[in-house]
Design a protein around this nucleic acid. Sequence first.
DNA 1: TTGAAAGCGATACCAT
DNA 2: ATGGTATCGCTTTCAA
Lengths: 335, 335
Amino acid sequence: MTVREIARLAGVSVATVSRVSNGTGQVSEEMRRRVLDAIEKHGYRPDHLGRALAAGRHGALGLVFPGLSGPYFTELIQGFESEAVPSRSSVHILCTHLRSDSDAQVLEMGRRVDGVAVIGGTISDPALIRLAEMIPVVVVAGQGPGSVASVRAENMAAMTALTRHLLADHELRRLVFVGNPEGSPDVSQRWAGFQRAHHELGLEPPAAPIAVALQQADGVLAAEQVLRAEARPEGVVCANDETALGVLVGALGRGLRVPQDLVITGFDDAPVAALVTPALTTVRQPVRELAAEAARLILRAAGQRGTPAGSLVLPTELVLRRSCGCPDDPATGGS
Amino acid sequence: MTVREIARLAGVSVATVSRVSNGTGQVSEEMRRRVLDAIEKHGYRPDHLGRALAAGRHGALGLVFPGLSGPYFTELIQGFESEAVPSRSSVHILCTHLRSDSDAQVLEMGRRVDGVAVIGGTISDPALIRLAEMIPVVVVAGQGPGSVASVRAENMAAMTALTRHLLADHELRRLVFVGNPEGSPDVSQRWAGFQRAHHELGLEPPAAPIAVALQQADGVLAAEQVLRAEARPEGVVCANDETALGVLVGALGRGLRVPQDLVITGFDDAPVAALVTPALTTVRQPVRELAAEAARLILRAAGQRGTPAGSLVLPTELVLRRSCGCPDDPATGGS
DNA sequence: TTGAAAGCGATACCAT
DNA sequence: ATGGTATCGCTTTCAA
């Protein structure tokens, strides 16, 4: 079924069929009925490729991420989709999982979509710049080079406040940081906030983080490393909730009590953070909103054939629960 | 830059440009050089839409899943991509998260891709059948209606063996099953295997499962429910590793010892399962391979403009670790 | 209001 | 070996 066939069957021109099926232009009621009948009868739906070629738009958005597992990325995908779907755009994904040819693959993707959101730290800056020259690009959870737009959460201040809370309010001293600052801009900023809080209080932060990836398994490995040390730390500040849960299960599995023997904190406020025992102290981050905002910026720019502008920073919120030694707060604690 | 422009600049016809850029047909060295120079000089890359329209193929594959979080889906995406990318196909995704209009959205996707993999239990059978009439479709982790092809793991036998192990070898009696059989074909089969093992041994399984979703948070909720009961079960058989970890952290957080006070088992053998303390007894399932196989079936069928055939069942493997009461086995235990 | 025809960008057949 | 041209399916301008 093509426009031409429908046109022939309805005894009208293809132009009229197009007008009817798009609701554009003026068509007499008589013609409209004839065309709609034919469309209905033969189950015609305009071909996406033909339409896209004529319109010069793909009707698709790209999402590029490293391919790490976990709730974070699922939230991200869903937030992105929640904006793309209503705009009748499909979502293309690309997991670079840090392959060597990921730059090339991202550029290839750039030729199949109307715009791309790239998670910070997944591809090289030159590739990002070249991509931004062809289509609208927004960096999510990171900062683009030059004038590439970005959307991220407030990491630094939140992590500084959290660390300060542990150092000042709970009077903890030996803290460690779990996460690899090289791995992503987010972690890098959180590590910086962790260090800053120490400096502000005249304390010396640890020389280096425990550099592991962001999955739960990595948290378990970190716990092994931390709890084996002769001078066990008093608190473990994790780059995200998943690793924090890994550390938690590692600590509990060894018979340690949290927070009495060891304080643990996360970042993200994943659904499970409020439910575990002890509930996890963390920082709430609007992940879905981050991705949705990126999609909106891209769609707007694509509509105007322009370039998305600006650098958006969404607020985060400290969530104090039991795992840092605070009393349980029913308001933030659960369900 | 279009074929026509390059043709004009190189002083040849568009046909020759096409031949050169595709490496098809015979072209003299002289012409080839002229064309390649022009292409190089102006950075020409054939437009994907034009090419797709002419070829009548989208160069894209679809992946439809409910949108649950977790390592399972990331593995799935990556396995799918690992086959799609080498075939120069991009990957479209659709998270239905069980929306009411997901059938319509999947059918819409069917008009933008060359084939689709649908995770079992995400859309209705009629929609699946209509989709399969337009393009190659493979159901992953489930069974399609009628002749729709499918790829899944062996759930039933594995779960029967696991449950039998708990009942016979560890002489446990009061077991509960955590997972919602209505939610997915996988869970349904695992619940059936759990029941079957009981029946085979002349025991009465619990009347109903603890029907929660498949995320870690749901496992924590299930733990709360289970451990509150007056007659605490001896073992908790979970539909996947994520919920098992939720139950584990819930149990440990309440001061229970695993496996002495409570036995816990999972399903999937996620990376973290081997690392937690105690290491998690589970069933290994080739998730990436499942998705890769689905992609291969789809690509092959799309290439021949046929319909993917058959119903593939990949083997699973029981992995006994400490959480069920077995001694730690260095061979399956870690890293 | 309606229709004829010119694109959109690339491929491939059929002559030459 | 090379070029002209029809074709893929749809949209849109321009006439009528």
